[in-house]
Amino acid sequence: MNNVIQKGWRPTSVLILLLLFWELSSRWMGIPEWLLPAPTAIVQEGISGWSAYAPHLFSTIRLTLTGFTIGSAVGLAVATLLHLIPKVREAVYPLLILSQNIPIIVLAPLLVIWFGFGVLPKLIIIVLVCFFPIAVATMDGFRQTKNEYIHYMKMAGATQSQIFRKVEWPYALPSIFSGLKISATYSVMGAVISEWLGANKGIGVYMTLASSSFRTDRVFVAIFFIMMLSLLFFLLITQLEKWATRWKGENARG
C-alpha cells in the first residue's frame, strides 16, 4: 500500500492539476458548454444520465467480451496451426499481415452490405482487430522456446504433441498474455467503431447521437467509460497473467 502511494502520487497530482486547470479555465474564460464543458458538468451528466446510457454501456460490454473471446480463440488457433505446420505458415503468414493493412473504417461499411446490421459484422470487426496481436505474440512465444528444453524432450523420446503441450505452450504463456493485453484494449475500440456503423444500442451509438446534437458533455461521459472499460479489461488480464505465470517469481527470467 505504501508502495502504491510512493509510486502513484506524482501521476495522480498531475492529473488533479490538469482537471483543476480545465475546470477553472472553462469557468473564467466563459467557454460555451457545447464547445468544452467543465469537468464538474461532465460528472453531473454522468450521474444524472446513468439510466439513459446504462443500457448502451452494457450492450457494449457484452459485445466487447464476446468479440474478444472469439478473437482470442481465433488468434490462439491460428498461431498453433501455423506453428505446428510450417508449410501453412509460409503460405498464410503474408495474408495475415495483409489483413491488418485493410483500413477498418473502409471495411466496416462493406461488412454491413454483406452481413446486414446484425451482430455478425460487428463481431467480425472486433475479431479482426483482436486476433492479430495474439496470433503474432503467441507464435513468437512458441518459436523462442529454449532449445535445451526441446533437445531434452527429444532425447527423452517425447512426441511432437508432448513437446508442444509440455514445453512450447507453457513457455509461450507470458507472450500470449502480452498479446491478450494489447487485444483487450483494441477490442473496446473495435466495439465502439463497429457500433458507429449502424446499431441501435451501444456506447458508440450514444456517442454519435450526443455529438450530432451538440451534447458535448455526453461525448465526454462516453469517452470516460470507454477509457475505464479498456483499463479495467487490461487490469483483469494482468491479474490473470500474474496467477498463470506465478512460477516466474520476482527475480526469475524464464
Partner: peptide, 12 residues
C-alpha cells in the same frame, strides 16, 4: 535416459 549438460529443468 538422458541428462544434458545444463539441468534443463522446466521453469514452470
Amino acid at each position: 535416459s538422458y541428462m544434458p549438460q545444463s539441468p534443463s529443468l522446466l521453469p514452470w
